[in-house]
Amino acid sequence: MEDMSLHILDIVENSIRAGAKEVHIRINEDAAADRLEIEIGDDGAGMDRATLEKALDPFYTTKSVRKVGLGLSMFREAARAAGGDLVIQSQTGKGTWVKATFQHSHIDRQPMGDLAKTLEVLTITNPDVRFRYYHREDGKEHHFDSNGLYPES
């Protein structure tokens, strides 16, 4: 993946496939602390402990059409390459929460990319899912909520 917006799209696609009806995307850029955090939480099917332990293994996937599952492991590699890491929490029937951290100024920290395009594609092609986006950038906050954008929601 070339940038954070594509990693986010990929991780949220996991949420969609897990049947999520609400997905939260939270980005916190704190230049003073030289830290970037990206969190994605959903109310999808979640994973049991055994699945969760394998979720970051690139040679584990739930898909039957191929034998590798690179999305989460690539996001973790991107975080580790930039002085951070990735953690996942999940509970069957409750949902999954992924948090990636980065050293904001790290030379290998990927750029944010086109976050608006990621949100656009997600909201338009998944009208039944509520997307809530919070982006804090050195004290300034941007919010986006797909609720109310469609007639029946």
């Binding site: 993946m1 594509l6 799209l9 990929d10 696609e13 999305g71 690539m74």
Partner: peptide, 8 residues
């Protein structure tokens, strides 16, 4: 198709 491979 928007799997990891497609997105990348």
């Amino acid at each position: 198709h928007m799997g990891t491979c497609g997105i990348a």
